[in-house]
Design a protein around this nucleic acid. Structure first.
Lengths: 341, 341
DNA sequence: CTTACCTGTGTAAGCGCTTACAGTTGATTC
DNA sequence: GAATCAACTGTAAGCGCTTACACAGGTAAG
């Protein structure tokens, strides 16, 4: 046996089956255009030879890849896992494949990955949030790549998007916190720069303060990357103030998990000594001790709808709509009313 | 402005810059073969035109993609996140891109994705575990695709692999559990069928029991998919036995997190009423309450080494070695000695 | 018996790159 | 001054597919 094993091509199949390459191609892509007899013979040959179509050649000739690209800010924690899973499942059901990249919250890396996915021939793209350079939107438009923005709700509906209003959502939670009598609020926020979701959430708290006659500029805020350890460190810093905050509102559940963990180390009881809130309602939120009060985001719905929207744009060249989903509060143990002294 | 915007190709660049396509290609791939003057002019043209090379055409002509594929069983939880992140970073540093798919622990889906990645021209593959059909290994060999197996240590070193001995690792933990006086052990295992890691871990416990003169067949075991909720449900079932186990050993940290959460709901104190152990030492393990005693796996090292190994195999056509990493016990609060009655 | 049409198949022209090979030029050597 | 060579650059042949178009043969309609 020679070691120069030949990888079978469509030509090989055609030759062995005694038909033209066009017919083999039709057997693969448009079976109804081929007679039953020919189809059977060709399929048998394909099997015998162990032939697999070359994806790149296919993409090149057809100018279609049935591939959708998605770029998410991080894969390290579960923030996007559930939504992306639903996105993937919906795509798969319609015969599309998903290619995922992580941008590590770096705009230039995201730009690079967008170009890479487009260069690979992605039929459409899913991006998180709306805040990015106009040049990127121009590029996407020029290349004619349908794009859906998720996890956000674009202020002026210039783009197709599926998400929710981060600001209004967090404001709803802050309203509740204030209604419970909390007046000394501190915040652990994600990095706001270049992240419209984090910015919106923080703004929601400030707006709520204003509506309740509080001074938003007096609000203690620490911005930090979404990692458990960062949440823990920020919590400790915030609790060193005098007087201590009665509640620490976190930009997401991961930061909140860090805060709760550190509270325990510091000998602080949650919620007796200090209340803590999160955002996202990932699985983690309900197994923490205490269970975490947070904003519930319909991740699976978001993923499904985004996929449907994108497929529609790809196949019908439609414009793509703006879909706004409702969020709700998940009231659990980690938040409770201020006790009068 | 017409709406039939043309996407610039290498030909366009060549024409505008007044050189041949070969020269443009050289500017992109082997700059040292081009004169400084030509290079500058071509690069300027590329910029002016906003040209991006077509990945598929490139892959086709060069028969190289600088892309590595990885198929992991799940993206839903963080089990593989850290290792994969390290894998990705190491690849990136050497100019390779990573394509990730999730097989959802389904062997046939994994097979399908292997073919898909090979069809896309992946230069190499990372797979988790060694247990899969011989046909897949044959296929990979025939296509000449270098492959590294990770998260496992293949019994007979027929394949390149980077991992650890799941059986020995879990046995080490079980030895410790037994040394602490526990005799009523129960196990929440991952699904063993088609998962050599889960099988090895379970076997490790049994081997330890035998070594300590216990009957391995009397061990209560529940097999379930790696999800928090499943761990919780299994825990409740196991604790319904009479007499109750004094320790519940879990196949990984995710199951353990579910067990701890359910223990709280049932009013059982951990570790006072029952000890719980995990496996993997993901970030979650140290923020649980109580903190989780588990087996620490060097995920980052594993990812880095796997990447280096794979690149070496791709570029030097080397055979690929078998690398076995050491694991250690992370002794935390959730496990404690049995208290004499 | 034409004419028209439908079904199934083949021919061949690309898709946008890379690269072996073949020049062309100017500098260097004897 | 001819020969040699190095440094660039161009020509053109694919890479493995899809698909517009052409064509053959059979059926139905006039």
């Amino acid at each position: 046996m020679s070691d120069t094993t030949h990888i079978p091509t469509l030509d090989d199949v055609a030759r062995v089956a005694g038909v033209s390459t066009a017919t083999v191609s039709r057997c693969l892509n448009e079976q109804q255009k081929v007679s039953a007899k020919t189809l059977e013979r060709v399929m048998k040959t394909i099997n015998d030879l162990g032939y697999t179509p070359n994806f790149n050649a296919r993409a090149m000739a057809a100018k279609r890849t049935h591939t959708i690209g998605a770029i998410i800010p991080t894969m390290e924690n579960a923030i996007f896992a559930r939504g992306l899973q639903a996105f993937q499942e919906t795509l798969h059901a319609s015969g599309y494949n998903l290619l995922v990249s992580s941008s590590a919250y770096q705009p230039d890396l995201e730009a690079e990955q967008i170009r890479a996915l487009v260069a690979r021939g992605a039929d459409g793209l899913l991006l998180i949030g709306y805040e990015r350079g106009q040049d990127i939107y121009d590029y996407l438009q020029r290349r004619g790549v349908p794009t859906v923005l998720a996890w956000t709700s674009h202020p002026d509906g210039g783009h197709a998007s599926v998400g929710f209003d981060n600001c209004a959502a967090m404001r709803m939670l802050a309203d509740r916190v204030l209604a419970m009598g909390h007046r000394r609020i501190a915040v652990i926020s994600g990095i706001v720069e270049g992240n419209d979701r984090a910015e919106g959430r923080l703004r929601g708290i400030r707006e709520s303060l204003v509506a309740h006659g509080q001074d938003p500029d007096a609000l203690p805020v620490i911005q930090t990357a979404y990692e458990i350890e960062n949440g823990a460190a920020a919590f400790e810093t915030l609790m060193a103030q005098d007087p201590r905050p009665t509640v620490v509102m976190c930009g997401n559940d991961v930061l909140a998990a860090g805060a709760i963990s550190r509270a325990k180390h510091l000998g602080l009881a949650v919620p007796e000594d200090v209340s803590i809130t999160g955002f996202d309602d990932i699985e983690l939120a309900s197994i923490l001790h205490p269970t975490l009060t947070t904003v519930h985001v319909p991740h699976r719905d978001m993923g499904c709808i985004a996929a449907q929207e994108l497929i529609d744009m790809v196949e019908k060249r439609s414009m793509g709509a703006t879909r706004k989903l409702e969020v709700s509060l998940a009231m659990r143990e980690s938040l409770r009313p201020v006790v009068e002294p």
